[in-house]
Measured scan of single mutants.
Amino acid sequence: TTYKLILNGKTLKGETTTEAVDAETAERVFKEYAKKNGVDGEWTYDDATKTFTVTE
Rank of each mutant, 00 (worst) to 15 (best):
D47H: 09
T16Q: 14
K4V: 12
E56D: 11
K36Y: 12
L7I: 15
E15W: 12
F30M: 03
W43N: 00
Y45I: 01
K35A: 10
L5D: 00
V54S: 02
G38N: 15
L12Q: 11
T44L: 14
K35L: 15
T17I: 09
D47S: 08
R28N: 14
T17A: 05
F30A: 01
T55K: 07
L12R: 02
T11S: 14
F30E: 00
F30S: 01
T25G: 07
E15L: 04
N8M: 12
T2D: 08
Y45E: 00
T25Y: 07
T1E: 09
A34E: 02
E32N: 12
V39H: 05
T2E: 13
K31M: 09
T11G: 13
G38C: 04
T16M: 11
V54W: 03
D22L: 06
T25W: 12
T17P: 02
I6A: 03
V54F: 05
T16G: 05
Y45A: 01
F52P: 00
Y45N: 01
E15M: 05
T1P: 06
E19Q: 15
D46H: 08
Y45R: 02
T18N: 04
I6Y: 14
G9I: 12
T55L: 10
N8T: 15
K50G: 07
N37R: 09
E24H: 07
D46G: 02
E42I: 06
T11H: 12
K4M: 05
K31P: 00
T51Q: 05
W43L: 03
K50Q: 15
K31Y: 09
A23I: 05
T51C: 03
D22V: 04
K50S: 12
R28F: 15
F30T: 00
Y45H: 02
T16K: 15
G41K: 01
K50D: 04
T51M: 09
T18D: 03
E19H: 12
T11M: 13
V29P: 01
K13S: 10
G41M: 02
K13N: 09
R28H: 12
K4E: 02
K36I: 14
A48P: 15
T53G: 03
T2H: 12
T17L: 13
K13M: 15
E19R: 10
Y33L: 07
G41N: 01
E24G: 09
G9T: 15
L7T: 06
D47Q: 08
K10E: 13
T51G: 02
T44A: 09
E32M: 13
T16L: 14
G38H: 14
E42W: 08
K4G: 04
T55H: 11
V21M: 12
G41A: 02
A26D: 00
K4Q: 07
T49V: 13
K4T: 13
T25E: 11
V29E: 08
E42L: 10
R28V: 14
T17H: 12
T44K: 08
D46A: 07
V54A: 05
T18M: 07
G9R: 04
D40H: 10
L7M: 07
E42F: 12
L12C: 05
T11E: 14
G9P: 03
G38A: 08
A48T: 11
A48L: 09
Y33H: 13
W43V: 02
A34H: 01
G9W: 15
T16W: 14
A20F: 06
T1S: 10
V29K: 08
K10D: 10
E56S: 04
F30L: 06
G38S: 10
T55E: 09
K13I: 12
G14A: 11
D47I: 13
A34Y: 03
T44G: 15
K10Q: 06
Y45C: 01
T44S: 14
G14L: 15
D22N: 15
T11R: 04
E19W: 14
T1A: 08
T18R: 05
E42D: 08
T44H: 14
K13Y: 08
G9M: 10
N37Q: 14
T44W: 09
Y33P: 00
K13T: 15
T11I: 06
A26M: 01
R28Q: 15
A26F: 01
K4F: 06
V54N: 02
E56G: 04
I6T: 05
A34W: 03
V29Q: 10
T25N: 10
G41L: 02
D46F: 04
L12Y: 09
Y33M: 06
V54H: 01
E56Q: 09
T44Y: 11
K50A: 08
E15I: 04
W43Y: 03
N8Q: 13
V39G: 03
K50F: 13
K10G: 04
G38P: 01
N37A: 12
L5V: 05
T51A: 13
T53M: 11
T18K: 04
Y33D: 02
L5T: 01
E24Y: 11
T2G: 06
T49H: 10
G14Q: 15
T44P: 00
V29G: 04
E42H: 09
T49F: 06
A20Q: 11
G38L: 14
T11N: 15
D46N: 14
T17D: 12
F30C: 02
E56A: 05
E42Q: 12
V29A: 13
G38Q: 13
D22P: 01
V21F: 08
A23C: 05
E15H: 09
L12F: 13
E24F: 12
T49M: 13
T1D: 08
L7H: 06
T55W: 13
A26L: 01
Y45M: 02
N37T: 14
E27A: 08
T51D: 01
R28A: 15
D47R: 11
L5F: 11
E15D: 08
I6H: 06
E27I: 07
E42M: 07
G14P: 10
D47E: 08
T18E: 07
D22Q: 04
T25I: 11
T16V: 12
T49A: 12
F52N: 00
A23T: 03
K35R: 07
Y33Q: 03
E56L: 03
T1W: 15
L7E: 02
K36D: 14
T11D: 14
